[in-house]
Design a protein around this nucleic acid. Structure first.
Length: 494
RNA sequence: GCGGGAAUAGCUCAGCGGUAGAGCGCCAGCCUUCCAAGCUGGGGGUCGCGGGUUCGAAUCCCGUUUCCCGCUCCA
């Protein structure tokens, strides 16, 4: 499948628009439309529910995007979050200058006839004394001098730029957690192990953004710092390592819980060279996007690096008193760090289906009901009958108090179903003549409506009075359609 | 930043020097008793932007912006 199909659907159906489109757009910035904001909010909501409300050991936090500049000095971002890049003038390839020194290079020496040597990293050529200035890929092109790519957005606090204090838009939400470690610990009276969760925007001057909302300069993270006592031992193993593995499993399972197919998920372990400066071990949850396997979430063991750095820089003690051992310890932090926008994209891509129904293409999003922007659409089978329309509007109004729902009467029923399919609405309620009765013939209605399920297109006949009960089971309690639907008579599919 | 591709209606695209088009979608009306039905009508585009060539440019040339695909980085 092509990502363009998703991009197009997202625009057409109000999920995601390009930012500043009327001005020609701006690179890698995207706006969430009316349905997109529902979907993204739902992703964040289930993440928060599963990780904060349903866990006794995790609490929430919402730190400011702007922080004291020293935070970034302490965290290492100011020094490490820049990459020196060099370009080959001949083959146009780009390299990180610091990584070039890790391997030997092929040197075409002008001082000798056969002029080709493998020279170890950092060593000058014994013939001409040249150090690496030639491209390691093509061996011909000269490399440009290294240029610094600062990945943090610099900004100014204060109305007059020259006098203002330089600060940065946070490149990760994690530091907001670390600098509040003691505040949260004291105010919430926590005992290790415990976690602090946060959802929020982060900003990075990515060298190469792209792939729709996958890699953008402005993005939203869903992060937990789970603090563990490094002196604890679980089953004979260091507690931080055990908890790290538990979180890897938990986070890997989480995506599947909301509908992502197992076959399109994998775990990938970072090797030594790839590990961030703060990490002891990191595993990524990857999803097979249309453009290939890419990272959804990184689960890192950041050890005590951050808390120690902030303690050192700020002069404040960031420790936990271990009652059992009567000693102060600096906890280790296990960090499951997920991309909210990436998750949205994965859920969209994975839910997208094209089916053939009676010779026609049916496009649908098989979104998990918890994620679907609209839970219920209430539709009149005939819009010319005032009683039907009035009843449908009334039902929709009542359902709207509990679930996001819409009313639509602007097309024939088949088209209305297809519209809802395309935005992933799991259930449609249809009001017909039998519901309200035919007054002219002196018939009274049966006060029953049809519920149609998105994926199977199955239909059941349900009393209006039981609608809220049925939807509570389906949408709130998560009881499967097959169970709930079996209680009611199926109506014939034409 | 480099290389390649692209930019025309909401979407997908045709038109490639001579009055801006199609399909789908959208809106309204008629019709219609459950899966993108039919009929009629309608709205909607200074052809990404700026310059040039030309009697005449969506079309040719130059520039520019943005998007997409690669390279490098990450959530």
């Amino acid at each position: 499948m092509n990502l363009d199909v998703i991009v197009s659907l997202c625009k057409r159906r109000g999920f995601i628009f390009q930012s500043s489109e009327i001005y020609g757009g701006i690179a890698s910035c995207w706006d969430y439309g009316s349905l997109g904001v529902e979907l993204k909010n739902n992703v964040k909501r289930v993440w928060w529910r599963d990780n904060v409300y349903l866990r006794p050991d995790v609490v929430g936090l919402d730190a400011a995007i702007l922080m004291h500049p020293s935070v970034w000095k302490a965290s290492g971002h100011l020094d490490h979050f820049t990459d020196p890049m060099v370009d080959c003038r001949a083959c146009r390839r780009r390299f990180r200058a610091d990584k070039l020194d890790e391997t030997s290079w092929v040197h075409y020496c002008p001082a000798t006839k056969d002029n080709k040597f493998d020279i170890p990293a950092g060593e000058p050529c014994t013939h001409c004394g040249a150090r690496r200035t030639l491209c390691p890929a093509c061996g011909k092109g000269e490399l440009t001098p290294p240029r610094q790519f600062n990945l943090m957005f610099k900004t100014f606090m204060g109305p007059v730029e020259e006098d203002a204090a330089v600060t940065y838009l946070r490149p990760e939400t994690a530091q907001g957690i670390f600098v509040n470690f003691d505040n949260v610990l004291q105010s919430m009276r926590l005992k290790l192990p415990f976690g602090i969760a946060q959802i929020g925007k982060s900003f990075r001057n990515e060298i190469t953004p792209g792939n729709f909302i996958f890699r953008t300069h402005e993005f939203e993270q869903m992060e937990i710092e789970y603090f563990v006592n490094p002196n604890d031992v679980i089953d004979g193993r260091p507690a931080d390592e055990v908890w790290h593995e538990r979180w890897i499993e938990e986070r890997f399972a989480w995506y599947q819980r909301y509908g992502i197919r197992r076959a399109r998920l994998r775990l990938r372990e970072h090797d030594k060279e790839e590990l961030a400066h703060y990490a002891k071990r990191t595993a990524d949850v990857e999803y097979e996007f249309p453009m290939g396997w890419s990272e959804l979430e990184g689960i890192a063991n950041r050890t005590d690096f951050d808390l120690k750095q902030h303690a050192k820089t700020s002069g404040k003690a960031l420790t936990y008193f271990d009652e059992e051992r009567k000693t102060h310890v600096v906890p280790y932090a296990i960090e499951p760090s997920a991309g909210a926008d990436r998750s949205v994209l994965a859920f969209l891509v994975d839910a997208y289906r094209e089916e053939e129904v009676r010779g026609e293409k049916r496009v649908l999003l098989r979104l998990h009901a918890d994620l679907a922007p609209i839970k219920i659409a209430v539709l009149p089978l005939l819009k010319k009958r005032d009683e039907i329309v009035a009843r449908a509007r009334e039902i929709q109004g009542r359902l709207a108090r509990r679930w996001v729902s819409v009313y639509d009467d602007t097309a024939a029923i088949g088209r209305l179903y297809r519209r809802q399919d395309e935005v992933g609405t799991p259930y449609c309620v249809t009001v017909d003549v039998q519901t309200v009765g035919d007054r002219e013939r002196g018939e009274t209605g049966d006060a029953k409506v049809t519920i149609r399920e998105r994926d199977s297109m199955d239909q059941i006949r349900v009393p209006v009075a039981e609608l809220e009960t049925v939807f509570r089971e389906l949408l709130t309690d998560g009881i499967p359609w097959s169970t709930v639907g079996a209680r009611y008579p199926a109506t014939t599919k034409s």
